[in-house]
């Protein structure tokens, strides 16, 4: 087991143990906050909140991955090169909109519920994914492309057998950045009534209940860490062919937050 894999196992174990222990953690929180009566968030099951959180992050990230990598791929093909500057501008704009603002604008138009949250998370997740795809395809050596063509690969064979495998480590790094950021951002979706790990935080904030905030925040953090490590473990074998082993789990794209 590599270092990344053991860290992942540890982080996952911590998440499971904490989720199971929190409903019984009343006495522990009573020590920290002696003058409160409602110490543990009990409106929802924590495991349910985690699953709901993952569901909305998963759905929005899947959409962002499909569209983001699709348009980035198109913009690197010969017929799509002209659209690349436009794409990069649009992506930068989508990243400049704070998710809270998207929620505030979308909610009056679409109403409360998961849809505005999905749109906000989707828009916010696009940029790192598309940029990862662009950077990944840019990193494919020109000689490899040239020789693939010269040896008689069709454009589709060149893409699947040469370009995408070579781009994969960077593409995955972009996806990882996007998903990790969205796990944090998804907590905000609870402001428009979506069930996520943000619920204890928001209810805690509005009711001045620090234990609730703490419980939601620690779980969101731990979930983000676990998923991030899962991506690190996933990307480990991808760079095997590289000359110096890149330090495991090093994201190549800077987080946008």
């Amino acid at each position: 087991m590599s270092r990344v894999q053991s860290a992942l196992a540890l982080s996952l174990l911590a998440l499971i143990v904490l989720t199971g222990w929190l409903p019984h953690a009343g006495p522990a929180f009573a020590l920290l906050f002696p003058d409160r009566d409602r110490l543990i968030y009990r409106q929802d099951d924590f495991a349910d909140l985690i699953l709901a959180h993952l569901a909305i992050v998963g759905a929005s990230s899947l959409l962002a991955a499909l569209l983001g990598s699709g348009v980035a791929l198109a913009a690197t093909r010969r017929w799509g090169l002209a659209f690349r500057p436009l794409l990069e501008t649009l992506l930068a704009v989508s990243q400049a909109l704070p998710p809270v603002a998207v929620l505030a604008v979308a909610t009056p138009l679409i109403g409360f519920g998961p849809l505005p949250a999905l749109i906000a998370l989707f828009l916010y997740g696009l940029l790192p994914i598309a940029q990862g795809m662009l950077a990944g395809l840019d990193s494919v050596p020109e000689g490899a492309r040239e020789v693939a063509r010269g040896l008689g690969m069709t454009p589709a064979q060149t893409l699947w057998q040469v370009e995408l495998p070579l781009a994969a480590p960077v593409v995955l790094a972009g996806l990882r950045t996007s998903v990790t950021i969205n796990i944090g951002t998804a907590a905000l979706a609870s402001t428009v009534g979506v069930k996520t790990l943000g619920l204890p935080i928001i209810i805690g904030l509005s009711g001045f209940n620090t234990p609730y905030v703490l419980q939601g925040a620690v779980l969101v953090g731990l979930l983000a860490l676990t998923v991030d490590l899962a991506f690190a473990a996933l990307s480990e074998p991808l760079g095997r062919w590289r000359a110096p082993q890149p330090s495991p789990g090093e994201p190549t794209l800077a987080g946008a937050d």
Partner: peptide
């Protein structure tokens, strides 16, 4: 078809031409 033609001819360029992931 260009692909068929190329597969019947060997092609080599400067050393960078190997596929690094294979």
């Amino acid at each position: 078809r260009p692909e068929d033609l190329r597969r019947r001819m060997g092609y080599a360029i400067q050393s960078i031409g190997l596929f690094p992931h294979w």
